[in-house]
Design a protein around this nucleic acid. Structure first.
Lengths: 235, 235
DNA sequence: GCTTGATCCTCACGCGACGTGAGGCGGCAC
DNA sequence: GTGCCGCCTCACGTCGCGTGAGGATCAAGC
């Protein structure tokens, strides 16, 4: 087999096969008199092994030593840990980025300095979030994020409406406030979905970091009390 | 401010600041007569902006164009999509890798060709899995994988026990079979946790690929029917 | 004024896994 | 002979810096 054939057969490029030879991974066992590479059956099998290991995300030199030492278990386990670490990092990055993109929807064409402040803020919120929720809980929330985002988008309106009633001095027992309180409870429920642990962590996070929550457009303590009074009045 | 001071203040290295200047990201607005860089307030703010955007994982040239054009919303949204793609890819990689590592525990010091076959196999199973579950669902499962692995370890025993009762011709209404059926339901519940969509996908995957499930040590259709009959009898 | 240690400057190579030419030879059909 | 395709070997570019090498400058003590 010559390089071109092998390349077509494996879906690799000729350059890649050249490169693997340079790195000593797959050295064709023969050459024609004019210097053309000739791969035999063993070489081809070797190429497929390198392909498989490369798909696991291993660096080429690790693949080389693996194919000579054969210590797959330890090397792959170590690699798995590293992948997990990258996954975790990428995951929190995605959280921060999603937060920033979300806020940008509300503020078109902000100044660079505003964006800077926004990023810092979101990172902090994200870190705070990570303190109160386990990675499993965050992953579970992430899993239904479309739904969660749709719900989250309704908070600003609701909060504004509640603020208006508070400013107007409306009694918590008033039907309008009652309806707001039940919308409030529904939105909360789309977040915790009946998971008590989740609900409690959210509550603790809010009461431990009132300043950040307000800065992020969340409700303040007075508003929470007002809604709680409305819920009590409704019973 | 000179480079060294700025580097200490920001936690960057002097080389990084030099590099950013080469790329045109942050060019100090002045130099001393002897050529030393002098950063003024604006330059320092600019450095912090680059730092913030870099933490979002943006490439340097994207940061440069962002800081001149100011089109944050579109660029960051595009970047988010790309991060999502990388996350998804890394995620299926982690699944495959975990599968291989898991199998390697059972087979110490396998030949490279065996590992190759193993990788292909696990990738196929992983792909099958990916066809039936959304990335979000896989993420949610992944999040509680320790728990899930512990539960999965109980399946072989349970399946063997059920097979024994079937072979003995025990009636599905028998208390022993009833108890097996309830253990079965519990194990299933640790998987889907009341999520109907998850349960249904699992069911579809099993009925679409009966051969692979049996080959992987899963239950066959007769066993499913038997357990279903037991569950019916228990009502 | 001289030495000394810290800080500054400008090249320039290295990393990882190839992509992408450039320039030239070999092989096969017409 | 002549075209065309495939093969060969350099060798530079990618991305974000790390890491010297070799030399100038600065602030301070003697």
């Amino acid at each position: 087999m010559k390089v071109g054939e092998l390349a077509r057969a494996t879906g690799l490029t000729v350059r890649t096969l050249h490169h693997w030879e340079e790195r000593g991974l797959v050295v064709p066992s023969a050459r024609t008199h004019s210097g053309h590479r000739v791969y035999d059956d063993g070489d081809v099998r070797r190429v497929y092994q390198v392909v498989a290991l490369r798909e696991l995300g291993l660096p080429l030199d690790a693949i080389g030593s693996l194919l000579t030492t054969g210590s797959f278990a330890t090397v792959l386990a170590a690699h798995l840990e590293q992948v997990d670490a990258r996954l975790a990092a990428l995951h929190t990055l995605r959280g921060t980025l999603a937060g920033v993109v979300d806020r940008l929807r509300g503020a078109p064409d902000p100044a660079p300095s505003d964006v800077l402040r926004m990023i810092d803020e979101v990172s902090r919120v994200n870190d705070t979030f990570a303190q109160y929720f386990t990675p499993e809980q965050i992953a579970a929330l992430q899993a239904r994020r479309d739904e969660a985002e749709a719900a989250a988008a309704q908070w600003p309106d609701l909060i504004a409406a509640v603020r208006a009633e508070m400013a107007a001095g409306t009694d918590p027992g008033d039907p309008r406030v009652q309806s707001l309180a039940s919308r409030w409870a529904e939105l909360l429920a789309t977040f915790h979905r009946g998971d008590e642990a989740l609900r409690e962590r959210l509550y603790r996070m809010r009461s431990d970091n009132p300043g950040e929550v307000v800065a992020a457009g969340g409700p303040d303590q007075a508003m929470i009390d007002y809604i709680a009074a409305a819920a009590d009045a409704g019973r």
